[in-house]
Amino acid sequence: MDIKINDIVGRRSYNCDLLFRVIDIQMIDGRKVAFLFGEDFRLVADAPYEDLVAINQTERQKITKEYRTLEEQSLKLFTQDVDLLRERQEYEVTGGYVKPSNYFQIPGKVLHLDGDPAYLKKCMALYEKIGVPVLGFHCNEKEMALKIGGLIDYYRPDILVITGHDAYSKAKGKMSDINAYRHSKHFVQTVKEARKKVPHLDQLVIFAGACQSHFESLIHAGANFASSPSRINIHALDPVYIVAKISFTPFMERINVWDVLRNTLTGAKGLGGIETRGVLRTGMPFNPIQDEN
């Protein structure tokens, strides 16, 4: 069976443990090589063409069933967290439910830059489902640093997501060498450019990174949260759960890092960060204008 660009495949040498989308096929040194993007994880890879196995829709559903279940569990836990935050806010604003519940809330605005248009679409659907105000842009990882300044000036976000695809290559260097990573240096430079615009860690909260990214460099560059402390793969939707938690946490509260990570699909091995303030703001009165007619 011929494998073409955009086909979903697995790798025989890895027992088809992960699903990939074929993004390019090239002849290199007389061999056919396929370039791959992870379908559920933010991983970029390449593989010999003959190592690929085409995955049909039925097989795909079987392989991804576990991931879909995890996504549903994470969303359920996150929704419970947000409901508790809202109940607590309502209790505090109304003085223990003594005063009228006449207030409004402004969650933090998110600017999401993604190196993969398919992942961006998935993330935007989840943001909408959760209720987070967001502006999303597809941008090649190598171009993010050039574009981030203008986007921050235009949108003035409270939270910034810088993500896409990444991978560590042992053949290119030690794990401590940022040049051994596919896109970590581009993410780092983008974080630095963003911090030139907004230096304060609580005025612009930044998540940066993808699968196997150089966590330490991203944090030192100015990210509040990043991947991947243990250089493992992270799920495509993990950045959404992290920034949504920040978006709905009141700005007077500091977020315990574990509270942010525990509802992600990857957890502390793939994601980490530093203590950060929430960005939700509450106001009153809530007084919607009624049409007289």
Rank of each mutant, 00 (worst) to 15 (best):
D2Y: 04
D2E: 15
I3Y: 04
K4S: 11
I5Y: 00
D7Y: 06
D7L: 09
R12G: 02
S13L: 12
S13H: 12
Y14E: 14
N15I: 04
D17S: 15
I23T: 12
A34N: 05
A34C: 06
F35V: 04
F41N: 06
F41K: 07
F41Q: 05
A45M: 10
A47M: 00
E50T: 06
N56L: 06
N56Y: 07
N56A: 10
Q57S: 12
E59H: 07
R60A: 10
Q61R: 09
Q61V: 01
K62H: 10
I63S: 08
T64L: 15
K65A: 15
Y67C: 07
T69A: 11
T79I: 09
D81S: 15
D81L: 15
V82S: 04
V82Q: 09
V82F: 05
E87A: 14
E87G: 05
E87W: 05
R88S: 08
G95A: 07
G96D: 05
Y97M: 03
Y97Q: 03
K99C: 03
P100K: 00
P100D: 01
P100T: 00
P100G: 00
N102R: 12
P107I: 03
G115A: 08
Y119I: 14
K122I: 15
M124F: 04
E128F: 02
E128T: 10
G131R: 01
G136C: 04
G136F: 01
C139W: 01
N140C: 01
K142A: 12
E143S: 07
I148N: 01
D153A: 07
R156I: 01
D158L: 00
I159V: 08
T163W: 01
Y168E: 00
A171T: 12
A171L: 06
G173E: 09
G173S: 05
N179E: 14
R182H: 11
S184C: 08
H186Y: 13
Q189L: 13
T190M: 01
R195E: 09
K197P: 06
D202C: 02
Q203S: 13
L204F: 01
L204K: 01
V205Y: 03
I206V: 15
I206K: 01
A208W: 10
G209K: 08
C211N: 11
C211T: 10
L218G: 06
I219K: 06
I219L: 11
A221W: 00
A223E: 10
S230P: 00
H235E: 12
A236R: 13
P239F: 07
V243P: 09
V243A: 05
S247G: 13
F248P: 06
M252K: 15
R254I: 15
I255D: 06
V257F: 06
D259Q: 13
V260M: 11
L261R: 10
L261M: 14
R262T: 14
R262G: 11
R262C: 14
N263R: 12
T264P: 12
T266Y: 10
K269Y: 09
G272Y: 04
G273W: 08
R277L: 10
G278L: 06
V279F: 02
L280C: 13
G283D: 08
G283M: 10
M284F: 13
M284R: 12
P285M: 04
N287M: 07
I289W: 03
